[in-house]
Design a protein around this nucleic acid. Structure first.
Length: 629
RNA sequence: GCUCACAUAGCUCAGAUGGUAGAGCACUUCCUUGGUAAGGAAGAGGUCAUCGGUUCGAAUCCGAUUGUGAGCACCA
């Protein structure tokens, strides 16, 4: 796998040229099939390319075979890519000639805003595109058997939902057929790990539309996994000095006005539940102002409740229940709290994007001097958590505010000084811990900067899993105070953190991470007993009971099936440990272990198995530690 | 929310051009008591997502609604 940088760069550049050129060929073929259509952007991407169009008649995936045929024909012709650089005036004239309004918009912007003196065009055969290049020499240099049209989707012009929606055609493209085939095989293997698919197959969760979109029902197997994660989180938090609290799923709407959440969140919240009160006629002046008229009386909103979109205000109220001293800080309040967010319908998906979720939440109230140490402790907690699951393929993202964002006033608390200070503190934490991270401008919470842990799902989407956020704004809005050593009142800082994310998102990622084959400590069913025949059921039942007495999730496979079938079903269910028992085992007081994913079997005494099993569960081992024979 | 596609048994899917449904797995019963990835037989299971329209007749054609998937936007 060793390769020097120069070589790698060359390979990447070749791929870039191929994909970029193939995109032109796609556009060319689309214009053949749909003359008069308009072009958007058509860049190379990670595994291929796409091109955006305004089509005058829709294209669907059914048109792909013909589109691919036309593309191959163009490639066969070996049209030369000719580069042409036109000065601003000539360039705009050229685009007008092409009658491409979106290219025109972009070209004009490049000239006016970016101050380009000239624009670059590429022509191959009859097709001209405004484009920076570079390209391959001729269309023959695009391998005809290494691309595949993938999907048609909608995409807003320039990624702005206020703009027109274009039709985007995605394609895979590689340097040769082997690379494409390899990619397709990988992609299919990834689809098999999709948490939505495995979640159903393994009985982890269902989403029932009589209950509601984005509101998962956790089945018994999924609930076991949640419970195990929660147990781990509680242990880690207890050791780290957290205290647990428990608060309701809703609160009066006014609480969110006071916390300042409402203006930022109103679109993400379920509509408030309003409790109406009947008032006499006289009270209604007929204006209908907040009142609803019903025969002879009017109803006014007496109180309104919101399903909470976050737990913090509840915890803040707990902080406020008694006078706090600096000696009480840091105060760490933890709760697995259920929250509800009215996610846009198009975004809801499986367990990764839901409308009801249970968050591994905690709020750490501390002084300014304590921020860095608390942040560091939280970062270590993450690291430990992720290591436990063997997850190391993630990136840290330092999410900052964007002072230049035109919508900034609606997105962020307006306090530049506090933003700068808190971002500096967090940056120092990352630097002092020696952690690699990327910065993301404009991704901060409204109340402060944060560090997010970003994971890539099997379907290739990047998701935030865990988050640690520094909040310099809300405690003040909530009027939280503590008495400092100086005898004066001060406002605490608040650190919001969720190392285990939400159960929904975390379990989804764990399913994909383990491909549904969970380590023993996490597996819904840890041990299944398989008897050679019914005669050994009593022996097996004794073992099941013995394991259950130690809180091991063990079951006896039903005896009517043949041994090969029971094994097949156990493997299909991805049970980590199958124990086969028959005459030999009964006679010797042993069990024969067949581990998931292994064909080799290990016969050992019940005692030895139990000891090894308990060891791997208690240490939350990713492997099963076989006893030494 | 937007674009496109899709919706048939618990699951995975088949059902050209309109004539009211089929397989495998799972499930139930019986036979089988079998040493490492599917033993055999029988049975039960469907208002073809919902509502409306076209038609003598709709799973099939049209429309709306709901849901799902892939993208786009959003993602505190």
């Amino acid at each position: 796998m060793e390769s020097n940088n120069q070589e790698e760069h060359t390979v990447e550049e070749v791929l870039f040229r191929i994909r970029h050129s193939a995109a032109h060929v796609l556009a060319q073929a689309v214009l053949e099939m749909r003359p008069g259509s308009t072009l958007g952007f058509g860049p190379p991407i990670l595994d291929g390319f796409y091109y955006d169009f305004i089509l005058n008649k829709p294209l669907t995936e059914e048109d792909f075979p013909e589109l691919e045929r036309r593309m191959k024909k163009i490639m066969k012709r070996g049209q030369r890519f000719d580069h042409e650089e036109l000065d601003a005036e000539a360039a705009l004239a050229r685009i007008d000639e092409m009658d491409e309004p979106y290219k025109r918009e972009y070209g004009a912007e490049l000239i006016e805003k970016n101050g380009l003196k000239s624009l670059s065009f590429y022509r191959n055969g009859p097709f001209v595109d405004m484009c920076e290049g570079p390209h391959v020499k001729t269309t023959k240099d695009i391998p005809r058997d290494a691309f595949k049209l993938r999907r048609v989707a909608g995409a807003y012009w320039r990624g702005d939902s206020d703009n027109v929606m274009m039709t985007r055609i995605y394609a895979w493209a590689f340097a040769d057929k082997a690379a494409l085939d390899d990619h397709l095989a990988r992609w299919e293997a990834a689809q098999a790990r999709d948490h939505k698919k495995l979640g159903r197959e393994l009985g982890i969760f269902v989403i029932d539309n009589q209950v509601g979109r984005g509101l998962p029902l956790w089945l018994p197997n999924g609930t076991v996994i949640r419970d195990e994660i929660e147990k781990l989180a509680r242990e880690m938090e207890f050791k780290a000095g957290y205290q647990r609290v428990s608060t309701p799923h809703l609160a009066k709407r006014d609480l969110y006005y006071q916390s300042g959440h409402l203006p930022y969140y109103v679109n993400d919240m379920y509509p408030a539940m309003e409790v109406l009160e009947r008032v006499p006629d006289a009270a209604d002046d007929g204006s209908g102002d907040g009142a609803e008229e019903t025969q002879g009386s009017a109803r006014v909103v007496k109180e309104a409740y919101c399903l909470r979109p976050m737990n913090c205000p509840h915890h803040h109220r707990i902080f406020a229940t008694e006078p706090r001293s600096y000696r009480d800080l840091p105060l760490r309040l933890a709760e697995y709290g259920q929250v509800y967010r009215f996610e846009d319908s198009g975004g809801v998906s499986g367990l990764l994007r839901v409308r009801g979720m249970c968050m591994n939440d905690a709020h750490i109230y501390c002084t300014e001097e304590q921020i860095k140490d608390e942040f560091k402790a939280v970062m270590k907690l993450y690291e430990q958590a992720f290591r436990t699951f063997g997850m190391d393929d993630y990136t840290l993202r330092l999410s900052k505010w964007d002072p230049e964002d035109p919508k900034g006033k609606d997105k962020y608390v307006d306090n530049p000084e506090a933003w700068e200070k808190s971002e500096r503190l967090i940056t120092e934490v990352l630097e002092e811990l020696g952690l690699d991270y990327v910065e993301a401008k404009g991704e901060a919470a409204f109340y402060g900067p944060k560090i997010d842990i970003q994971l890539v799902t099997v379907t290739g989407r990047e998701e935030s899993v865990s988050t640690v956020q520094l909040d310099f704004a809300v405690p003040e809005r909530m009027g939280l105070k503590y008495t400092g050593s100086d005898g004066e009142e001060h406002t605490p800082y608040c650190i919001h953190r969720a190392p285990f994310s939400t159960h929904e998102r975390f379990v989804a990622l764990l399913i994909e991470h383990f491909g549904g084959a969970f380590p023993t400590w996490l597996a819904p069913l840890q041990v299944e007993l398989i008897t050679i025949s019914e005669h050994f059921d009593d022996y097996a039942k004794g073992i099941v009971q013995r394991l259950r007495n130690r809180m091991v999730r063990a079951e006896l496979a039903r005896s009517n099936d043949t041994v090969p079938k029971k094994i097949r079903q156990g493997v299909t269910r991805k049970i980590p440990n199958l124990l086969i028992v028959g005459e030999r085992e009964q006679a010797d007081g042993t069990v024969t272990l067949r581990r998931y994913g292994e064909r080799e079997q290990h016969t050992m005494t019940i005692d030895a198995f139990e000891a090894a099993l308990m060891e791997s569960i208690e240490t939350r081992s990713l492997e099963f530690l076989l006893p030494r024979s």
